[in-house]
């Protein structure tokens, strides 16, 4: 077990280093020149050369990468080209909003998805089951930005139940969280359904019924907890989807998180911010995958620790 964990930690670290390298390489070949953006159109060649030197952009690739990497190990993500502030500070200021949105999104997708999956499995083959499964397909086929805008239209503009965008109270959180959870709810309802169907066939369910437990108790006490475990592990793997969702949802709702930060940085070619957010996002994805692995071992000890 400990051997497995340490190997996974080592692999995760390697993946993160690989990501720093690839992102750096991609942004290095980016044709847009950040120096021109900082200096402005009327800058003389001397000024441009000066700024280039200050930023270390006149060094060869491997030296630039090495400098970046060493700084990174010391927790220094560099400085934003345009905002003149520390990238680490910018990300730190915006991370709580994104984590809040992510947590609320996971809550929403589990609440809706698991409920749909449980009901479906209990009505297997029936009308309710069929309708719910079609709904789940619509969920996974709906682009988040369109769902978000239409939610804004109905619940914020027409009905005025929630604010049109922004951040602060729980009312601000409802629509973005639902938008984030909409797609995942579709996946989770399908997975929960098949997981429930699996569990409901097991002997211990028959035993529970045989000893005279009520139907509801059998389902809530014995079936659901066993069906839920493999699904919890999936959340870890889904962090990547959430990061993608964050960029879209935060830009639709004006949510001040790292997704919006990244999106604004991409439009302004503010490379240190793009690098920083990519790394932070990759960090969460790697952690998520790691946790998923660990959970699946606990859920099903038969998984070989290879």
């Amino acid at each position: 077990m400990i051997g497995f964990l340490s190997r996974r930690v080592f692999e995760s670290a390697l993946i993160l280093i690989g990501i720093t390298f690839i992102t750096f390489l991609l942004l290095f070949v980016l044709p847009a020149d950040p120096v021109r953006q900082i200096a402005g159109r009327s800058a003389t060649p001397e000024v441009i050369a000066n700024i280039r030197h200050q930023l270390g952009l006149d060094l060869p690739f491997y030296q630039q990468y090495w400098r970046y990497f060493v700084n990174l190990l010391q927790g220094d993500f560099g400085r934003s080209y345009l905002q003149k502030s520390e990238v680490a500070e910018l990300i730190k200021a915006r991370l709580p909003a994104s984590l809040l949105l992510m947590a609320a999104g996971i809550f929403a997708e589990l609440l809706i998805g698991l409920a749909m999956g449980i009901i479906s499995s209990l009505r297997r083959g029936g009308k309710t089951d069929n309708i719910l499964m079609v709904v789940s397909f619509v969920g996974v086929s709906a682009p988040q930005f369109a769902v978000g805008i239409l939610m804004l239209y109905f619940f914020a503009v027409k009905l005025a139940w929630f604010p049109i965008g922004g951040y602060g109270t729980w009312q601000h959180l409802v629509l973005p969280a639902l938008t984030m959870g909409f797609m995942g709810a579709g996946w989770y309802s399908r997975m929960m359904r098949s997981s429930m169907l699996n569990v409901l066939e097991q002997d211990f369910i028959r035993t529970a019924k045989a000893k005279g437990l009520g139907k509801l108790k059998v389902i809530m006490r014995h079936a659901v907890p066993n069906a839920i475990l493999p699904i919890i592990a999936m959340i870890g793997i889904d962090i990547g989807l959430f990061v993608s969702g964050m960029i879209v949802v935060e830009s639709v709702f004006g949510w001040p998180g790292i997704g919006q930060l990244a999106w604004q940085a991409i439009q302004r070619v503010d490379i240190p911010i793009i690098m920083g957010v990519t790394l932070v996002a990759a960090f969460f994805i790697v952690i998520g995958n790691f946790i998923a692995d660990v959970i699946s071992i606990f859920v099903d000890p038969r998984i070989k620790l290879k």
């Binding site: 692999e11 390697l14 993946i15 993160l16 690989g18 990501i19 690839i22 992102t23 991609l26 942004l27 070949v29 980016l30 044709p31 847009a32 990547g240 990061v243 993608s244 960029i247 879209v248 990244a262 999106w263 991409i266 070619v269 793009i274 957010v277 990519t278 996002a281 990759a282 994805i285 790697v286 995958n289």
Partner: peptide, 22 residues
């Protein structure tokens, strides 16, 4: 497979946006 693992850990949309911008 290591390259594949690496790609799995990349935030896909962010990568697509950066590539599309390049």
């Amino acid at each position: 497979m290591r390259i594949t693992d690496l790609m799995m850990a990349f935030p896909a949309l962010l990568l697509a946006i950066v590539l599309a911008a390049i």
